[in-house]
Design a protein around this nucleic acid. Structure first.
Length: 327
DNA sequence: AACGCCATCAACCGCAGAAGG
DNA sequence: GCCTTCTGCGGTTGATGGCGT
């Protein structure tokens, strides 16, 4: 037996809202509030709408101070940066952009930003033989596939242990300015004007400055703490691949390296963001000479990708974060 | 002018988690 | 601790308008 429907589907109106419906809903909520019960709301007002539909209409359209259309470059950067760091959690991203709704951001991402990034990735693929994702796939191809009984063989012991404090915890990652720096390096290079060919040439004067990220980070932390640290825990810590997270109010919520490594979708975005700078090698470079990042790779990724053993690459990604923060 | 294609965005749907009994 | 109800979230769909042929 399935779940009972939230309303009588036969007697509710669907589709676009009329101005009259909008006016009724708006007037009622402004006068009485939602009463803490969206399901009962349409009946009170006399609207033939599902409660969920009323809620959505209010949150996405009728609510005061809603901004529509025209995302600024800074907003784009924030969206991209947060998408890279926390994935498609639109409500959290929306919390960082006053006046924007999760629905708006989601649509904007799906219809524009994603294409913009993928377009760039294609461009970059014309300039280099393979992308980061392919490199990592290749590297991970050498890994021994885990069985359910030997999961902890696949992942290095310290990382697999969720109960343990995160072994790669680095004080550098725990202050706002450093987090800001890191995010700028990860996500602040998304504007079209920034086409730095490699990491050494990265232009840090992106449109997103440290204070923006400090604010962002503080807001993120407050929203994580207020509403959804369990969400973070379940999302990243309990999926069985060893995703310890920093829990304190001054720490970054998720270890960048872990996320990048474990989520191909984010990897793809990150790869687009980093562009050719991420893969500073050419067709002529032998695999033995190859490191992930050229100059940076020499210190962060000392080995050719093929030579990385299980867990080593993940640690390198953490080192990468440290490297970026230290710059 | 008519048609088809595509991009955009509002709205819907189903699920997971929280809250309350 | 279990069950039910409600809320919030993220993925998806469908209506609409713009543009090219």
């Amino acid at each position: 037996m399935g779940r009972a429907p939230c309303c009588d589907k036969a007697n509710v109106k669907k589709g676009p809202w009329s101005p009259e419906e909008d006016a009724k809903l708006k007037a009622f909520i402004e006068k009485h509030g939602t009463g803490g019960n969206w399901i009962a709301l349409p009946q009170k007002i006399g609207l033939k709408r599902c409660g969920k539909s009323c809620r959505l209409r209010w949150l996405n359209y009728l609510r005061p101070n809603i901004k529509h259309g025209g995302f600024s470059e800074e907003e784009e950067n924030i969206i991209c940066s947060l998408y890279i760091s926390i994935g498609s959690r639109w409500s959290i991203i929306a919390a960082q952009l006053p006046g924007r709704t999760d629905n708006d951001i989601k649509n904007y991402w799906n219809t524009r930003l994603k294409k913009k990034l993928l377009g760039r990735q294609k461009e970059q693929q014309l300039q280099r033989p393979c992308n980061l994702q392919q490199e990592l796939k290749k590297a991970s191809h050498n890994f021994i596939a885990p069985t359910s009984a030997s999961q902890n063989v696949y992942w290095p012991e310290p990382v697999a242990s969720i109960a343990e404090p995160y072994p790669y915890q680095d004080p550098h990652l725990n202050d706002h300015a450093s987090t800001g720096k890191l995010l700028i390096r990860l996500g602040g290079r998304l504007s079209d004007s920034d086409q730095s060919p490699n990491m050494e040439g990265v232009n840090l004067q992106s449109s997103l400055d440290i204070s923006t990220f400090q604010r962002l980070h503080e807001n993120s932390m407050s929203s994580f703490n207020e509403t959804s640290s369990p969400l973070l825990n379940t999302q990243y810590s309990t999926k069985g691949i060893g995703m310890p997270i920093s829990q304190g109010p001054n720490s970054f919520p998720v270890e960048i390296g872990d996320m990048i490594y474990c989520n191909p979708q984010r990897l793809e975005v990150l790869d687009s963001c980093y562009g050719v700078g991420m893969m500073n090698h050419s067709n002529e470079t032998s695999s033995a000479e190859r490191t992930i990042w050229g100059d940076i790779g020499n210190s962060v990724y000392p080995l050719p990708l093929e030579d990385y053993q299980p867990g080593m690459l993940q640690e390198c990604l953490i080192n990468e974060s440290r490297y970026l923060v230290s710059q």
